[in-house]
Amino acid sequence: MDAAKALGKTLVASPERRQEADADFEIVRRVQAGDVAAFDSLIRRYRERLFAVIYNLTANREDAADLTQDAFIKAFQSIHRFSGQSTFFTWLYRIGVNSTISHLRKNRLRSFFSLETLDADEPVARDVVAALTDTADGERDAFVRELQERLNAAMLKLSIKHRTVVTLFEIDGLSHQEIAEVTGCSVGTVRSRLHYAKQLLQAELQPYLRR
């Protein structure tokens, strides 16, 4: 039963997200009516998630910050064009992802990587690190750093399209349908890209997997 729920969640948006979308639409209506300050609440709600997506696509902190800000500026300038046919965050993600893809294509040869510090209090991160290491805290930090770099390198070996799908699904937790709306391709294409990208990542990160 849980597996079926999880599968359904991967395919379509969750009810919580629909409620969020309704609330977003109300705020967008206020901004369109002239309440410019209401846009700040949208920024506060989505800045961290959008930054995380762009950061995992670019692997650069400064670029990610600039691109996230630009995405919000573009969304603010084009808010009158938003008609509510899609959810606001899907629309915002589309702006951010398209800007990031353009940026990556322009700066294909330039690569400055920067890593954020891993939040050790995150439950998932704590469990994964505990499962992978049984050493002292000092060595564990070095191991986590190395794992971050290997993860980063493996992600950057993926093409931009595959990296986008993996980032939106595995890191941000969007459904296949939402990813299809953001990337502008079909759900089948999303699943295909996701499967191919995971195969490549598995091959790259084989030493860190425990079965």
Binding site: T117, V124, M155
Partner: peptide
Amino acid sequence: LLRLKRAER
């Protein structure tokens, strides 16, 4: 492993 990336903040 990919969920570790969520913890990078």
